[in-house]
């Protein structure tokens, strides 16, 4: 392994999306963003919908939107398990707006608490996605 680099992995249930060695990744944790450098203390965190930034050579080389998930950090590695991930550049604004309005409709139609919670989650994801794209 290269000196001073963390092995960053982004995995979705369907496939391994990204696996590379980077200087730093900034991950949107549930309790605030955190940056992971090499020799980070081991931790496990849940993620909120937001953008993962991959830093290499002092600049952001990649920004990927994740719709929540989990992150596992060890001194040498950072693994993100995301349910849904898209590169920020590839976010389709129109589709996302559609999704947001669908979710808002669902929220109005929701009868049970769990339906409501699910709709609210979808809204949060869509809003975060729009924010990331702008």
């Amino acid at each position: 392994m290269a000196e001073g680099k963390v092995a960053f992995e982004l995995v979705s249930p369907e496939r391994l999306l990204l696996s590379e060695e980077v200087e730093m990744v900034v991950v949107p944790g549930d309790e605030g963003d955190f940056g992971v450098l090499v020799r980070h203390a081991p931790m496990i965190s849940t993620l909120r919908p937001g953008v993962i930034q991959v830093h290499d050579g002092g600049a952001v080389t990649e920004s990927i939107f994740v719709a929540g998930g989990f992150a596992e950090v060890t001194p040498a590695r950072c693994t993100v398990l995301a349910e849904e991930a898209v590169a920020v550049a590839e976010i389709d604004r129109a589709a996302t707006e559609q999704r947001l309005s669908n979710a808002q409709d669902d929220l109005l139609d929701a009868k049970t608490d769990s339906e409501k919670a699910q709709a609210e989650r979808h809204i949060a994801v869509a809003e975060a996605m729009l924010k990331a794209a702008s």
């Binding site: 309790e31 931790m43 590695r77």
Partner: peptide, 25 residues
Amino acid sequence: PEALNGAVYEYEPGEEEILTALLPT
């Protein structure tokens, strides 16, 4: 593959919250 040198994970937010999110997933 890698020993954590006896270090334990920190949990953010808390163990239980993570477990409640992680188990259904």
